[in-house]
C-alpha cells in the first residue's frame, strides 16, 4: 500500500501543513477585522491589534447601531433581498418550465432559449442601460434595485437543467390523467424541485445582499442606499458629501474600529447562510450545470 511508504508519509505531513496554512490564510483577514471591531479606538489606531481584540469593548457596535442611516440601509438591503429573491425565483420557475421541454412539445423553444441567453452574453454597456433606467423613471426608486435583475438567466438555466433530469414518466402519467401544464408545473415539478429552488434562493439572496453598484449608480440620495452601497461609499470612497451629515457624525462613522464593525455586520448575513449554501452547492446543482 502506498499509504505506508516513507516518501508518501512525508508528503502527507507536508500536504496537511500546506492545506492548513492556505485555509487559515483565507480566514485571517476576516478575523483581523473582527478583532479590530472589538478593540478600543486607541489600540486600533496604534496598529496594535492582531488577531485578538485588545481592550475588549462593544463601543464601535453601539455607535454603528445608533447611526440611523446605517440602520435604514440594513432595512433597504433586507427589503431588496426578500423581494428580489422572491421575484427571481417565481420568474425563473415560470421560464424554466416551458424551456425545459423538447422542441417537439414547444415549438420555437430554441429561439426563446437564445433570447434569454443572448441577454446573458451581450449587453449594450453601461451607458445605454443607465439611459433606459432614466427614461422609464426608475431613478431614485427602490424598485431600481429589484426590477432590472429580476430575471436571472443563469439561475433559470440551472433550474432548466434540473427540470430536464426529472423523469418524463411523471409528467406523462399526469398528462394522461388529464392534468394541464399548469397542474403539472405546480403539482409535480414544484415539489420535486424544491431542494433545487432552495439552493437558487440562497444564491440569489447572496447576490442581492452583495449588490452595491446599482445603488451607487441609480440612487442619488444616500438615505435610500442599501447596506452594500452604503459601505462602499463610507469605507471605500470615504465620501460622505452625499449624505449631508455633520463633521461630528462623520467622525463617528469613519474611525477604524467603527469601519471594521460595519464591514463585519455587512458580512454577517453571508456568514450565517454560508453553512446552508455549502451543504447544497457541493452536492450537485452548481456542479451539475458544468458537467459534460
Amino acid at each position: 500500500m502506498y499509504h505506508k511508504t516513507l516518501s508518501y508519509r512525508i508528503f502527507n505531513v507536508f500536504n496537511i501543513c500546506l492545506m492548513l496554512i492556505i485555509a487559515l490564510l483565507c480566514i485571517i483577514p476576516l478575523v483581523h477585522v473582527l478583532a479590530v471591531s472589538f478593540s478600543s479606538k486607541a489600540a486600533a489606531d496604534g496598529n496594535l491589534v492582531g488577531l485578538w481584540p485588545i481592550d475588549f469593548t462593544l463601543e464601535s457596535y453601539k455607535k454603528t447601531m445608533n447611526n440611523p442611516i446605517f440602520l435604514h440601509s440594513i432595512w433597504v438591503s433586507i427589503k431588496r433581498t426578500v423581494i428580489g429573491t422572491g421575484l427571481t425565483l417565481v420568474l425563473a420557475f415560470l421560464a424554466a418550465y416551458p424551456l425545459s421541454k423538447e422542441n417537439s412539445a414547444f415549438k420555437g423553444r430554441n429561439i426563446y432559449s437564445w433570447l434569454f441567453v443572448f441577454t446573458m452574453i451581450f449587453s449594450g454597456g453601461l451607458v445605454p442601460f443607465y439611459m433606459v433606467i432614466q427614461k422609464i423613471g426608475l431613478m431614485d426608486s427602490f424598485w431600481v434595485l429589484v426590477l432590472p435583475g429580476a430575471v436571472n438567466v443563469y439561475l433559470t438555466i440551472l433550474l432548466l437543467n434540473f427540470f430536464r433530469g426529472v423523469p418524463k414518466e411523471l409528467e406523462e402519467a399526469a398528462l394522461i390523467d388529464g392534468a394541464g401544464h399548469f397542474r403539472v408545473m405546480f403539482s409535480i415539478y414544484l415539489p420535486v424541485s424544491l431542494p433545487a429552488i432552495a439552493t437558487l434562493a440562497l444564491f440569489s439572496m447572496v447576490t442581492q445582499w452583495n449588490s452595491w453598484f446599482d445603488g451607487l449608480l441609480y440612487l442619488n440620495n444616500a438615505k435610500d442606499y442599501p447596506l452594500a452601497t452604503f459601505l462602499q461609499t463610507v469605507i471605500i470612497q470615504r465620501d460622505m458629501s452625499s449624505m449631508s451629515i455633520s463633521p461630528k457624525e462623520m467622525e463617528l462613522i469613519s474611525t477604524k474600529t467603527v469601519k471594521s464593525a460595519q464591514i463585519f455586520i455587512g458580512a454577517l448575513p453571508i456568514l450565517v447562510v454560508y453553512p446552508f449554501l455549502q451543504k447544497y452547492f457541493a452536492s450537485g446543482l452548481v456542479v451539475g450545470s458544468v458537467k459534460e
Binding site: 449588490s211 452595491w212 459601505l231 464591514i263
Partner: peptide, 11 residues
C-alpha cells in the same frame, strides 16, 4: 461569497 465591497474594505 463575500462581495468586493467587504473584501475591498478589508484589503
Amino acid at each position: 461569497f463575500l462581495s468586493w465591497v467587504i473584501l475591498g474594505g478589508i484589503l
